[in-house]
Design a protein around this nucleic acid. Structure first.
Lengths: 152, 152
DNA sequence: CTATTATGTTATTCTAGATAACTAAATTGC
DNA sequence: GCAATTTAGTTATCTAGAATAACATAATAG
């Protein structure tokens, strides 16, 4: 009773097909893996994924209000305050109170924020290239993004 | 200076290509979306993704130790304790102390755990079918899983 | 001009994960 | 066989992310 007639399931390999066949499960594993890679690659820049996406978005849309940037990224504005505050303290981002709307903070990159982002973009492009290589080329990447789109 | 010569970026649409082109960003969005769907679909069963995967794994590998199940799922055994405890309190899972190793808890589904999982599997299959439909068929699903594999 | 809505903020809560320390039991190395 | 080490489960604690509520100030609508 305690011995296996056939070692289908040996001591360390267990049947996980029913788990690994789940789309959400595989998505999560892949996402965690990619984010882990991001954290490793950006360790010396001390930049988290959310912070990087904020810098990119502010660079491409200077002068936008905090709420606008936060909304696009799906970040609650209450939590966005701390995030932007951190970037501001590091001298990467400035908030000028908008003259048109004295409630709003218009976001801009500082000069050092721009050069920091230029560097970060380089690092990120290298990482992205490696992911594309793993996927098997830009076509495969595009297919992946198209499939992910359908889930969103 | 405050007016846009051309409304490339009108009041509500901002340039997000540089963000949406990022593999990790898109992966995360898709994953959050799918998990959100899971939570909605499993709301009345009060089952979270991690709990579902534990039930499936225990059903397919009865008698395994906590640590083994936890490791396959990438859950730290310290955190796994609470998870299993919850499932045990709901009468879905039993831990029998293993006679061979008095330290270890061998995990099994209870009878009601088995019928609960049968129901949950049905609910999940329906959800998975809908995702496959969104992706454009089982071939597209297989391509997605293959691509995700390369990132993991 | 008053009532409502929007922006940024603070404080609080909840959850998922990670780490450290402990016990009891098993295993390893003499 | 016995001391030292490792392993399984547990508890407690800490951090990070995200969600909610409440508030001050300013803009907008009726």
């Amino acid at each position: 009773m305690s011995d296996n007639p056939e070692p289908l399931t040996s001591a360390d390999s267990l049947r996980a097909e029913a788990t690994t066949g789940i789309i959400g499960y595989r998505l999560r594993r892949a996402q965690l893996n990619v984010f882990q890679k991001f954290l490793t690659v950006f360790d010396d820049l001390k930049l988290r994924p959310a912070e990087y996406s904020v810098l990119v978005l502010v660079a491409d849309n200077p002068g936008r209000k905090q709420t606008e940037i936060a909304e696009v990224l799906g970040i609650k504005r209450a939590n966005f305050v701390t995030l932007v505050h951190g970037l501001e303290e590091r001298g990467l981002v400035e908030r000028h109170p908008s003259p048109q709307d004295k409630r709003a903070n218009a976001l801009h990159l500082t000069t050092s924020g721009q050069s920091f982002l230029a560097h970060a973009r380089g690092v990120h492009n290298a990482m992205e290239d490696e992911l594309v290589a793993r996927l098997g080329g830009t076509q495969a990447r595009d297919r992946l993004l198209a499939l992910l789109d359908r889930l969103t």
